[in-house]
Design a protein around this nucleic acid. Structure first.
Lengths: 129, 129
DNA sequence: ATTTTATTGCGAATAAGTTGCAATAATATA
DNA sequence: TATATTATTGCAACTTATTCGCAATAAAAT
């Protein structure tokens, strides 16, 4: 299953690379200048996840959000699980530079982590005062 | 909006109290001995959440799971955000006794946390070897 | 006993995500 | 450069989780 380069793939990847936030499918669809089918966007995103280029976060709204794993440096380095912050005001999700550290009971094996804090980001806190 | 005592409410609460795990709507419906409508179960659960009796966790499957906030002692005490563990093998979610501690950037205000680790629980790890 | 209104069941609606299938278009190969 | 291979796409239909409107029911208050 060799991957091919397509305008769709490039467009979605560019969006994610230039975004400070994790994006949902509909946000991506809205922000794209070319029209891409919903199902296709999901397929592209899921392929990115399989390839380790992008990671998926599920927020408490039950929706999937996608973010580039490593912004720029050390693209090789495996991304470690980290916290995410979802601002309820501006409805964005961003990666925090805080690794998830949680000791689990004996015999438990952790494969993945999905950690999202919700609240108000700095920008929105300022606006509301 | 005063709350009323109903068989439905009692049944759901009992189930949650006697369960070691967080339960989804369909798990609750399955485990109940009386038949309760799907929508009603959701409404009861959401009311419990509003009242702070139960907390909701959203897993990476996008589904909502509900758990009693405090098992027994100190029912007054506000539950603090903690990690959850979801076993992919037996498909259960349990509360870990590990509080979520995560420093956020300046000006950010955290209201809630939704943190789920996924993997294999002790039981299932043993079974698979 | 009667009134008030919270709760329920039902059916329909919504919303997110996935899937099958035929058409299209990258890439490999000749 | 032309052709063959098969990854990717668009479309429509489907699934699953959750919510909502509304009329009927039943706690609790009077």
């Amino acid at each position: 299953m060799n991957r091919r380069n397509t305008p769709t793939k490039e467009a979605v990847l560019n969006l994610l690379m230039n975004s400070r936030n994790a994006l949902s499918q509909d946000a991506i669809e809205r922000q794209l200048d070319i029209e891409i089918n919903r199902a296709t966007i999901y397929r592209v995103l899921n392929r990115f996840c399989e390839d380790g280029i992008v990671h998926k976060i599920v927020a408490e709204d039950g929706k999937q959000y996608f973010a580039i794993c490593k912004k720029c440096e050390n693209p090789q380095e495996v991304i470690q699980p980290h916290f995410h912050f979802r601002c309820l005001s501006c409805d964005t999700i961003e990666c925090l530079q805080v690794p998830v550290e949680c000791s689990v009971p004996n015999g438990y094996e952790v494969q993945n982590a999905n950690c999202v804090l919700t609240g108000t980001c700095n920008n929105c806190s300022l606006l509301s005062t």
